[in-house]
């Protein structure tokens, strides 16, 4: 901040996100933050502490646990919720499978990524949440480039990208019928580099997975995957120890690591600034087809 009343771009993005979060608290009866344990939802949670300080965040953290999460993610999630004094609600994909609501995928490309949508929508319905705040960003993927800040979902939780409400100025229309809900994306205008610069500036704590560490991995179709009991081996695959870190945190079975020595926030930020591959470039779930994100989002995915 300077004498000429100018904000740098991180301050301006922060101000916008805080405005969006407060608008959620003001317009909705039962809002929640969808917390994945990834850096983006950690930044959303950090912004929420700023938006409502000195009060506690007036909405619970909702986590959809696929059962295939990294243990580090779960540990971090529990610690954060306790430190902030926020309620933590966990929706379990395993429970959805056990209840026969969805069937586990089989085959070599099997993952629980798509199954999460059913658990998510069930959790939203059980909690009667009318607004779910997520950490998605428009720069992540082409279908997300058209997201609103307040994104309407019908009573089946579906997104209709061709009939979105126009969103003008900072006037967010969260009006809805009973049973419908909104997805809200305070980080819409942030890029991956903005996120890392902000995490570094604010010294925000992250799960250890983001930092370079030694881990047993297998390389499959050019993607480095963490060795674990949830990842069935294919013929000829032998896990070997590599120095890696993760750029995004999804399920163990689909989240690619990158070979890296970046073990501090400063080194990671420098690495992100120099990289030539998008962060979702390592996500097997996005590679299924050219519009796989759009298709999943229409069904109600994050």
């Amino acid at each position: 901040m300077t004498q000429d009343y100018q904000l740098d771009h991180l301050d301006e993005l922060e101000a916008e996100s805080i405005f969006v979060l407060r608008e959620v608290a003001a317009q909705f009866e039962r809002p929640a933050i969808l917390f994945s344990g990834g850096k983006d939802s950690i930044v959303v949670t950090h912004l929420a502490t700023k938006a409502f300080a000195p009060a506690r965040i007036p909405m619970p953290l909702v986590h959809i646990d696929t059962g295939h999460n990294f243990p580090e993610t779960i540990e971090f999630r529990d610690g954060l919720a306790e430190r902030l004094g926020v309620q933590l609600v966990v929706g379990s994909v395993q429970a959805t499978i056990d209840a026969g609501r969805v069937r586990e995928e089989t085959g070599a490309q099997a993952s629980r990524n798509r199954l999460q949508t059913t658990t998510l929508l069930d959790t939203v319905e059980d909690g009667k949440y009318d607004a779910c705040v997520g950490g998605a960003r428009r720069d992540e993927e082409k279908a997300r480039a058209k997201e609103r800040f307040f994104s309407h979902r019908d009573d089946f939780g579906q997104w209709d990208p061709k009939h979105q409400r126009p969103e003008l100025w900072n006037l967010f229309n969260g009006n809805h019928m009973p049973g419908e809900h909104f997805r809200v994306f305070p980080l819409n205008n942030w890029t991956e580099l903005d996120i890392w610069n902000y995490i570094t500036r604010e010294q925000i704590a992250l799960p250890s997975l983001y930092f370079a560490h030694d881990r047993k991995c297998v390389v499959r179709d050019g993607v480095i995957l963490a060795h674990s009991e949830h990842l069935p081996h294919r013929e000829g695959e032998t896990p070997e120890t590599m120095r890696v870190r993760f750029r995004t945190l999804g399920d163990l079975t689909i989240t690619g690591a990158i070979a890296s020595d970046a073990d501090t926030l400063e080194k990671i930020t420098a690495e992100v600034a120099a990289t030539r591959i998008t962060e979702r470039g390592g996500r097997v779930d996005d590679k299924r087809s050219e519009t796989s994100m759009e298709d999943r989002k229409k069904e109600g995915y994050f």
Partner: peptide, 16 residues
């Protein structure tokens, strides 16, 4: 970005 746009070669919604 959207499927309909790719098919028709036109832009139908604001993209950021």
């Amino acid at each position: 970005g959207l499927r309909a746009e790719r098919e028709q070669g036109i832009t139908i919604d604001v993209a950021y």
